[in-house]
Amino acid sequence: MLTDEEILSRITNVVRDQLDDDELTLTPTTEANSVDGWDSLAHVRIMIAVEEEFGVRFQTSEITSLKNVGGLVALVRSKL
């Protein structure tokens, strides 16, 4: 079983990869709006990449109704 920290760190890697920004750090309270380049278009790519990373599948409504990175971590954990 993965811990939240491990999930967060793997998500961070995915986002860094997708946004082409190696210095990016994410915390559970980070919101997409506050991350340079994480707009609605990038959001979809990121989420699909996260799906691939963890081998899970999100509902459309789950993808669009996330509040922050913590929510994403919880969502991933609930699918594992």
């Binding site: 609605s40 278009l41 979809v44 989420m47 799906e51 459309t60 993808i63 669009t64």
Partner: peptide, 18 residues
């Protein structure tokens, strides 16, 4: 429109491409 039309279409498209 972005949430209920663009996002599902884009998600489906991204998955398809993946």
């Amino acid at each position: 429109i972005a949430r209920f039309l663009f996002s599902p279409l884009s998600i489906a498209g991204t998955r398809y491409a993946a």
